[in-house]
Design a protein around this nucleic acid. Structure first.
Length: 937
RNA sequence: GCCGGUGUGGCGGAACUGGCAGACGCGACGGAUUCAAAAUCCGUUUCCCCUUAAAGGAGUGCAGGUUCGAUUCCUGUCACCGGCACCA
């Protein structure tokens, strides 16, 4: 065996691959091969088109990279390499999302400071990523925990703090402009007049209108994590991370007015080239619904305002329901009466019930009568007002008019409590029998009253008629509602960006001046979250840091005198903050005076379409997991739009084209009873799988997990096959977007492909070039086809078929084993040079080695991309199928240019066709030139 | 429950606008090479029937439909995956 190996020291195997890969990685580093220049830098080529291609940056965990991470990174690497060879200026950066809960949890568990564990995890990730040979411009690398980065995260937050949303102009504007307009009387405040407000009242008014504002809200408090969580971080009443119970409690927290952007976040989804599924998910998350607000008179208690999407069913509203947190509930309790105590009990019970409990019995409705009566404006009837937790305080007005005949939830409630049901819509072909609600479009019925009549009108017209009547009588108006809630942005955790804000002794907040940024996260030995029923941020333990003066904290002296004692904000920003704008910083990562320069923003983010119109978003290709379809991608869009409104960026959207790579799964094995068996306990015998010392098991697909021992470490795979093989394997598994199972056995296939490429070009014994004397015409044609196919497949991100076509080519070009003189077969020098260049994006190290052996100029990385000759893509003759009644009965060779009649006559003359026709003549002949012929009898 | 996606050989998958189903890879089988093996190369490999071969039949989750022709379009249905889930 050793003897044999010595005979072929230049065979492409693990040792050779690892040696040459590491050698070329050093060479690329030394040459600065992937350094991207910015406009204005010496050597920048302004005439080239730009391509900004971004990976969702990883959150470095202690466990290191797993094989799922590189999937998307390999894909972007291939596209970037191809674009670079095609003459683009390519921006392809990488960095680290490093603040946030998991790092802190890990630190708490291990007792090592998160700054230490995070830096270490980053080192590991960087080392692992570099071993893949990715073409990142590492000079642009940063982590969200770098003070020079989070300085600008804080700066953006201050921009939001200093802005308000002008609903008339439909954009954010500096809050100073709102103040000036109120001051000048050009704008009237909601509520009391500006003149009647004192300084505190005016400040409070402005504070209420900021995009980043302090809001008292019912929040999701997770005692175990010691922090509040955003709604979307709570799943089934448990924390998304860790699965700990979450309580609801009122708390004053920093919020983002993302709801102001609901309409734009929804409609601008039309501008981006994103997967439909993701756009749909965002649209559903935003949850726009059109309807009306209607005021019901509750005698003695004022007006009760409800939101409904079905104002046409007003005549069918037989009772009202308000959320247990609704102010009317308090009013009813205060008013006393026979219902007061049961109402108080119910409200208290609901307040303590977690979302889990509420959802667990969502079919079993609960609620109590408040004893109040409301007047249905259409019928004039007095109807009862109930409170029930199936009505949510956070949506609409926290109150509904219940129409049990046409709403399943209302029907279930009415059923449970014996409330009346009245049909007011007749749906075509559906009989209303009083045993179930009928929802949908129909014609109004039983809907005539002294004030308003809509009987017979279809739902659309009936809605319009009711709204018109409501507006005329001042009882309501058209209204659009969104499910989207404002974004809770405070966390009671240590490992996050501090807010650049302080409180004076009266509790009023004041911003830290931009010049004083960043507000550094203080070193803290004890950063553990405080597990308690009341939120207590760990930063509160840094008493010297917290209690300071306005001057020390960096508050502008025009805002507060420098000696004023202040208390710093002890909450920190959530993990999402850093990832909301990192794609901007990559354009100009070293900028000391700006978040990024105007020139770099304009060059990298503003793209023109070929027709001259502006592209919606800056990043030309953004690849990452579908698990970020809503949160990260919605938050980043929101920040981007604020920055757009305030003139800091020039595109309405951050990510023009988005793509999700699929998930890598693994095989697992299942016993008869359905339980899973670890992979190393299973052996294959005669094509079936058996548990060691047990019965037969079936192969199933599962997530990779430690317990199943089917987790693959990419380092091991690279050690065994090299990075190029790893890259080819992950790209050949199937479509990038599909989730697919890892199968170590299959890696050999692409490894063998690289070995064949190697043997095609080099003598395995000497390492010398093997070059054909002359080009085989068929191989030359196939090479053009391969170049064409690979070029198109890279544009489509269809790397699996690109690789398949390269394999086909190499198989066709491979010399027969019995060929004595290698110059009789294989590829010519010029053919090898072209093939190596199309291979280069996929297997860059092997391609670079071959390129240098071929004596190509410079690095293959910078070589121009080969172009297929269109004339070589068509053959003189094509084989087409002849079908009789849809079944293939013969194959004929016809000239490519042959027209339908020529093909028909060739087909009808074919002996096999004549046999099947058996003397009959076809009734009809369909000819698709270049494809097939179908004869119909 | 609602929304979206996916179902193709033993396995991963291919098939661009309705036009030769199964490219390419794995595995399996056979052969060459070898003292032997590994590696490599060549060949076969959807299933069924018959088999020396030829020829035939069925076939893209299932049941229908449109069409000269359907993996592709339409209707219904089942399974799996993902998301949402009292949003009035």
């Amino acid at each position: 065996m050793d003897e044999q190996r010595n005979e072929t020291p230049y065979r492409y195997g693990a040792t050779l691959a690892n040696e040459l890969e590491e050698r070329w990685q050093r060479a690329w580093d030394d040459a600065g091969a992937y350094r991207t220049l910015n406009p204005g830098e010496p050597g920048f080529q302004a005439d080239r088109p730009k391509f900004y291609c971004l990976d969702m940056f990883p959150y470095p965990s202690g466990a290191g990279l797993h094989v799922g991470h590189p999937l998307g990174y390999i894909a972007t690497d291939i596209v970037c390499r191809a674009r670079r060879m095609q003459g683009f200026n390519v921006l392809h950066p990488m960095g680290w999302d490093a603040f946030g809960l998991p790092a802190e949890q890990y630190a708490v568990q291990t007792g090592v400071h998160p700054a230490v564990t995070t830096r270490k995890a980053i080192e590991t990730y960087r080392r692992q990523l570099k071993r893949f040979g990715f073409c990142y411009d590492w000079s642009r690398e940063f982590a969200t925990i770098d003070p020079e980065y989070y300085r600008w995260t804080q700066w953006i937050w201050l921009q939001c703090y200093g802005a308000w949303y002008d609903a008339d102009a439909q954009r954010a504007r500096p809050i100073a402009e709102l103040e000036a307009e109120l001051e000048a009387g050009r704008r009237q405040p909601e509520g009391p007049s500006w003149a009647s407000l004192d300084a505190v009242g005016r400040q409070a008014y402005l504070d209420r209108h900021r995009l980043a504002y302090l809001g008292e809200q019912t929040v999701n408090w997770c005692p175990k994590l010691g922090t509040v969580l955003a709604n979307e971080e709570v799943i089934d009443g448990k924390s998304e991370r860790g699965g700990y119970p979450v309580l609801r409690m009122p708390l004053r927290q920093w919020m983002f007015r993302i709801t102001a952007y609901a309409e734009r976040l929804l409609s601008d989804l039309d501008l981006v080239d994103w997967p439909d599924s993701t756009r749909t998910m965002q649209a559903e998350w935003i949850g726009r619904s059109e309807g009306a607000e209607i005021d019901f008179d509750v005698p003695g208690f004022g007006m009760l305002r409800v939101f409904t999407t079905r104002p046409d069913t007003l005549f069918g509203a037989t009772y009202m329901v308000v959320a247990p947190e609704h102010p009317l509930v308090d009013a009813a309790i205060k008013a006393g009466g026979e219902h007061a105590s049961t109402v108080r009990e119910y409200a208290a019970l609901s307040a303590n019930r977690s979302d889990v409990d509420r959802q667990a019995d969502s079919k079993q409705k609960s609620g109590v009568d408040t004893g109040l009566r409301a007047v249905n404006p259409a019928t004039g009837e007095a109807i009862p007002v109930w409170t029930a937790d199936y009505v949510l305080m956070g949506y609409g007005t926290g109150a509904i008019m219940a129409v049990p005949a046409h709403d399943e939830r209302d029907f279930a409630f009415a059923r449970a409590f014996g409330l009346p049901v009245r049909q007011v819509v007749q749906i075509d072909g559906v009989v209303f029998d009083g045993n179930a609600a009928t929802s949908g479009h129909g014609a109004a019925c039983n809907s005539s009253g002294p004030n308003c009549s809509i009987d017979g009108l279809d739902t659309t017209k009936a809605k319009a008629a009711v709204i018109e009547w409501l507006m005329k009588t001042g009882r309501g108006a058209r209204r659009v509602n969104f499910k989207l809630r404002d974004w809770l942005f405070s966390r009671q955790r240590y490992w996050g960006e501090p807010f650049p804000i302080v409180y004076d002794e009266t509790g009023r907040h004041h911003p830290v001046s931009e010049r004083a940024l960043p507000v550094l996260l203080p070193e803290l030995a004890d950063y553990k979250p405080i597990e308690s029923d009341v939120p207590m941020p760990p930063l509160g333990k840094a008493t010297d840091w917290v209690n300071t003066t306005a001057g020390e904290a960096g508050v502008d002296s025009s805002v507060l005198a420098p000696s004023t004692p202040v208390r710093r904000e002890t909450n920190t920003m959530p993990g999402w903050a850093g990832s909301c704008w990192y794609y901007l910083r990559y354009c100009d990562p070293a900028n000391k005076s700006r978040m990024l320069s105007n020139e770099s923003e304009r060059y990298w983010l503003q793209s023109q379409r070929s027709n001259g119109t502006m592209h919606a978003g800056g990043v030309d290709l953004y690849i990452g997991g579908a698990e970020h379809a809503v949160l990260h991608l919605l938050y980043a869009r929101f920040w981007h739009k604020v920055l757009f409104d305030l003139g800091h960026v020039g595109t309405p959207e951050p990510f023009g084209r988005l793509f999700h790579q699929g998930m890598l799964t693994a095989y697992a094995y299942q016993r008869q009873d359905g339980s899973l068996v670890a992979v190393d306990q299973v052996e294959e015998r005669g094509g079936t799988h058996h548990e060691r010392g047990g019965g037969p098991v079936t192969q199933v697909i599962a997530k990779m997990s430690k317990s199943l021992r089917n987790v693959i470490n990419p380092d091991d795979v690279i050690a065994e096959y090299g990075a190029d093989t790893f890259r080819l394997y992950e790209m050949s598994m199937g479509p990038l977007e599909a989730s697919k199972p890892w199968n170590t056995r299959d890696i050999a296939g692409v490894h063998r492909f690289l070995q064949r490429v190697w043997r095609l070009a080099l003598d395995e014994r000497t390492g010398g070039l093997l070059v054909a004397r002359q080009a085989d015409p068929a191989v030359e044609r196939l090479l053009h086809r391969t170049v064409h196919k690979v070029t198109g497949d890279i544009d489509r991100l269809a790397f699996n078929t690109a690789i398949a076509s390269m394999i086909e080519f190499v198989n066709a070009a491979t010399r027969p084993q019995d060929m004595k003189d290698p110059a009789d077969g294989g590829l010519t020098h010029a053919q090898l040079e072209r093939f190596v260049r199309v291979l280069a994006p996929f297997a860059p190290h092997a391609a670079e080695e071959l390129w240098s052996k071929l004596g190509g100029s410079g690095l293959v990385v910078h070589a121009p991309w080969p172009i297929a000759d269109p004339a070589m893509l068509v053959d003189d003759e094509v084989e087409i199928a002849v079908q009789l009644m849809g079944k293939v009965r013969a194959r004929i060779m016809v000239p490519t240019k042959a027209d339908a009649t020529q093909i028909e006559s060739i087909a009808l003359g074919h002996p096999d066709v004549l046999v099947h026709l058996a003397g009959k003549s076809p009734r009809k002949v369909i000819v698709v030139p270049g494809r097939m012929v179908n004869l119909v009898l």
